[in-house]
Amino acid sequence: MTYEIPEVPGEEKVVITGETAGVWPLWEVFVRAKRGLNHIHVGSVHAADAETAVQNARDTYTRRYEGVSIWVVASAEIHTSDDSAAMFEPFADKPYRHPTFYEIPDEVGQL
């Protein structure tokens, strides 16, 4: 949804350009299901600021008691890996890097 930002006498004209022009910015939402677990990425919400992002995340993702804690991070602040062929494919043929590849001598017992 986009808005016309009204021009108000006495106020500077608000100009927002780029992809997010006229929409609330996007925030990534992480929810901790219960104490002792990690926050897990569950999705994203639109919000004008961090405080409303937490509230919107609460109403969007925890209304069935899915969580006890919420983190939000501005989506624009997330840096991602790219070029997946070069980044990850070299590891595809190195199964010996899994510790399960080796036989564990009986004497070692339970690791």
């Binding site: 639109h46 109403d59 969007t60």
Partner: peptide, 12 residues
Amino acid sequence: GPELEEELAIAN
């Protein structure tokens, strides 16, 4: 609602 998220908050 002005945004889907705010609408959901009001519905809640």
